[in-house]
Design a protein around this nucleic acid. Structure first.
Lengths: 217, 217
DNA sequence: GACCCACTGTAACAATTGTTACCTGTTCAT
DNA sequence: ATGAACAGGTAACAATTGTTACAGTGGGTC
C-alpha cells in the first residue's frame, strides 16, 4: 500500500470508524476517487446522471432544489461524515439527479461507484447500517425543512438559515450577499435586507458588506 | 397451510409480486399481523414506539406532521403497495414516531416485526430492493411536499390537495369539511372557504355540504 | 315546532410577504 | 479619474394570507 493510500485510509477512519469489517475501509480507499473541491464549485446539477455516491470527509456542501421556473430553495447542508441520500435515490431509481449540490466550504470527498456501493450492501453489515442510517438522516433533514417551510415565518427561517450555516462552516462570519440568501430561501433580496436589518437591531447579528456576523445562537 | 393463510398469500402477491425469493411472501404472511382498519382510525401517533413496519395492501393512509404548538400539516398519502419509510426511519433510529398516521379510507395492512424486517434485509435481495425502493419513493414524496410548500400558492396547494385525495381515495366526491382541509394544509378555515369558492366559480369543483366534487384533473 | 350545533359564506381588517423604484456607497477594470 | 457593475438601504405600494366577527342554512334532538 502506498503512503498516499495509507493517509487516505486514516482519513476515512477518522469519520467512518463505524465501518468495522476488515478490509472495508481499505476497499473504499482503493475503489473510491478522492477529490478536493473548492467552495463555490458545482458538484452536481439537476438532471445529471448519478453514477457515484459521495462520502464527505471534510468541508460542507449545500443541497438545492429548483422548480420548473428556475426558482431555487435550499434543502439542507451536508457535513463531514455525511453522504447524500438524494444521490442514492437517484442511483436506485431514475439515475437523474433531482437536486443541485454546491460546495459551500472547501471539501474533501470520496466518490464511490454505484456498483461497488450495491455490492457492499450485501457483503458488509456495517455498510448496510451506514447506508440506512444515511437515508434516515436525510429523511429527518427533509422533515426539518418541511417544518421550517410550513411552520416558521420568514424572519425565523432567515435566522435559522444563518445559524445553520454558521454551524456547518464553523464560522460566525458568513460571506454572503443578501441576494444569495434570497435565492436559498426563495424570497426576494428586499425582504432579506429588511429582515436582516431587524435582526441587527435586535442584536442577533451584525451586518457588513458581503459579510454577516452571527452573534447569538 | 390454512385456507386463510393461502388467501393472504395471494393478496400479498397481488401487490408485492416483485418479492421473488421462494418462501419470502409465505414468511410475510406467516410472521406479519393482518389487520383491517376503518377510515378515521389513528394508526400511529407522534411519540409512539415503532416496532412494526406496515405493508399496505388496500386503502389509503394519510401521514401528518405536527409542530410543537400542535399545528398540523399533511405530508403525503400512502396507497396500496406502499410502506412507510418514516416508520422505518424510526425503527432504525430513535424508535419514536415523528409523524401521525390516520386511515383515510378503509384499509388492509400487514404489520411486520422490525426484527424480521432486518433479518430479511440480509437474506433476500428482492426485499432489500423493495425497502430501498420504498425509501426512495418516500424521499421523492417529501421532495414533492417541499416543492408544494415552497413554490405553490395556497390556491394551487388546495387544488393539488383535492386532486391528490381524489386519486388515492379513487373517488371524485370528497367527504371533507373546510375545517379539516384547513388543518391538513395548515391554514385557516376562512381561507379554505374563500379559495374553494373561487375554484367553484372557475368550474374546477362543485361544493356541497360536507362534500366536494372534483370536476377536472 | 323550538332549539342547538356544526358547517359554510362573507365582510372588514391586520399582518406578512412580494414588487418596483430609486438612492447611496463600494469595488474594479480601463 | 471615470464609468460600470454590484451591494445594500429604504420608501411606497400591491398581493397574499391570516384573523375576527357575524349571519344564514341544514340536520338532528327534544
Amino acid at each position: 500500500m502506498s503512503e498516499n493510500q495509507e493517509t487516505l485510509v486514516n482519513k476515512i477512519k477518522d469519520y467512518y470508524e463505524f465501518l468495522l469489517e476488515d478490509g472495508l475501509i481499505e476497499e473504499i480507499a482503493k475503489t473510491g476517487a478522492y477529490q478536493q473541491l473548492k467552495a463555490g464549485q458545482h458538484m452536481m446539477e439537476i438532471g445529471d446522471s448519478v453514477v457515484h455516491m459521495p462520502l464527505l470527509l471534510t468541508g460542507a456542501i449545500k443541497i438545492l432544489r429548483e422548480d420548473s421556473d428556475g426558482d431555487e430553495l435550499l434543502l439542507y447542508f451536508l457535513e463531514k461524515g455525511d453522504t447524500c441520500a438524494m444521490t442514492m435515490t437517484c442511483c436506485y431509481g431514475e439515475s437523474k439527479s433531482k437536486i443541485r449540490a454546491i460546495v459551500e466550504k472547501d471539501s474533501e470527498i470520496i466518490f464511490i461507484p454505484i456498483l461497488k456501493m450495491e455490492e457492499w450492501l450485501a457483503k458488509y453489515k456495517s455498510w448496510r447500517s451506514f447506508v440506512f442510517e444515511s437515508y434516515n438522516m436525510r429523511l429527518s433533514e427533509m422533515l426539518e425543512t418541511i417544518d421550517t417551510l410550513a411552520f416558521l415565518k420568514m424572519d425565523e427561517r432567515l435566522y435559522k438559515y444563518l445559524t445553520d450555516k454558521a454551524v456547518v462552516t464553523q464560522s460566525t462570519f458568513l460571506s454572503n450577499t443578501h441576494q444569495e440568501i434570497a435565492y436559498d430561501l426563495h424570497t426576494s433580496r428586499v425582504v432579506v435586507s429588511r429582515l436582516l436589518k431587524q435582526l441587527e437591531i435586535s442584536g442577533k447579528i451584525k451586518l457588513f458588506r458581503n459579510k454577516i456576523e452571527v452573534l447569538q445562537f
